[in-house]
Write a protein that binds this DNA or RNA. Sequence first.
RNA 1: UGGGGGAUCGUCUAGUGGUAGGACGUCAGACUCUGGAUCUGACUACCUAGGUUCGAGUCCUAGUCCCCCAGCCA
Length: 568
Amino acid sequence: MTTPDLPAPSDFIRAIVAQDLTAGKHGGRVVTRFPPEPNGYLHIGHAKSICLNFGIANEHHGVCHLRYDDTNPTTEDPEYVQAIQEDVRWLGFEWGDKLFYASDYFEQLYLYAVQLIKKGKAYVDSLSAEEIRRYRGTLTEPGKDSPYRTRSVEENLDLFRRMRADEFEEGAHVLRARIDMASPNINLRDPVLYRILRAHHYRTGDKWCIYPTYDYAHPLSDAIEGITHSICTLEFEDHRPLYDWVIEQCDTPHRPQQIEFARLNLSHTVMSKRKLLELVEKRYVAGWDDPRLPTLKGLRRRGYTPEAIRAFCEHIGVAKRDATIEAALLEHFIREDLNRRAPRVMGVLRPLRVVIDNYPEGQVEEVEAVNNPEDPRMGTRKVPFSRVLYIEREDFREDPPKQFFRLAPGREVRLRYAYIIQCTGVVKDERTGEVVELRCTYDPQTRSGSAQAGRKVKGTLHWVSAAQALEAEVRLYDSLLQNSVGGPTDAQDFTAQLNPHSLERLTGCRVEPSLAGSSPGHRYQFERQGYFCVDPDSTKDRLVFNRTVSLKDTWAKVEKAQRGEESG
RNA sequence: UGGGGGAUCGUCUAGUGGUAGGACGUCAGACUCUGGAUCUGACUACCUAGGUUCGAGUCCUAGUCCCCCAGCCA
């Protein structure tokens, strides 16, 4: 985590904070907040905001509040409240006792509203929703005053009190700010401050039937908590005059400053709550923690580490221009992290049986394997080797193309940490012609670590000993969307862009016996393949792995280029 | 000719009048018992047009393009 006084990432928001500090603007305090609405799970876009808000606070020995923006009970759910806290903690941030809810301020907010009415700055409007929309005007035409705009303070007070007292139907009245129906900024055309919602609130129960809107509750919540810098995304930029209006008119003791930055867009995935919800509800994915989703829960299940996500968030920067980060950048950070930390292991995804004809039947020897060449402290382990093995089906070609350094009839390769073998025969299924087994011989002189082991071969393969191998299921993931799009303006039916091959389940995979008993959440590098994470679906008898990300695959590039030449 | 924002390598991002830098990516090579990692090298950018200036990505003028806003959502 960011340590105070170390050189921090620099961006325009941090520059503003630093300037404010120098100017003594908030008495030297820095208080930020992360204000999620509990109506969905957190995703990596939220992670950017979390890292920003908590990061800035930490850098200045300040605090960052976790505050739920729970002003709309019709869409919010306590399920999300719990999940959000878990996710923020998992990401590595602590809010101490600074856990708040906008609903904690409902009474204060109501009192402020009464003051606004008394000042003539708010009124009860009895137009229908549809009428309000029509009276609002358009982007190019000014709005018209509601006929109720001129109600007396007394009448407004009475009506507002009775709204609270549950005397009206939903939609009968709203409380609106009296600002300017002709403002070129539509947000200033008498925005709604309170609406009647006869909904049960998960925290305040049935105490309230009127609820404040975001535009009213948010600035006041910030002010009440003494937030100094209220950081939000760009779409709220033209709400800032309203934010400031509310603070000004309510004459709060603190004057927080709203600053906007560009939200995170990631290629090949979706980030909007609406779309994520749709994917979950319509069962395009298995749930909020589906490893294909950019939700924090999904990324965690996929095998992403909080460290990698934080490193990603720190490196993408903070600016005001719309940007879409390539998914490859996120992958870079998880590879970088896991390369350092993940123990190596051998696992065969699509097994091809290999019999070493000149290896003694029934013999098993143990070869020593390095757990992590990047970190000698992680030690070594023993891996059983015997006459019958499995190698990766794609590591054998009967008719090898150029540059194919792996096994083929007559060819030699090294088995990682073991012997050099030569392919002497190919056994095929008589009916299908499919290669079902390889016959090989080994060179006893070439065992890894032995004096004569120095002979060079072009390829090294991973393998498992058939008798000792554990059977496993492996889930391979590809991007959620086929195209890189995913921006906020793409087609309404984004589901047409879903990648039909985003999930591939492999059963009958074989992994080395050292993996026995590995528990969910453990991460490994399967040598030559990628990083894998034990899934909670694992049972005592059968491990399930999620592929977090593949290793970079130079051969795949070479082969693709070769194909391109052929067809071109 | 409504308002608010924004334009720098393929993608992000620095640069606030003085050599356009970094990361990812891509390509080429070295090394390698992971075609991983690592290490070299290369690649490609200031939206346009004028102007100010010894000097402009930065300042000025005029354009162009992109994003956001007409919820009793946030």
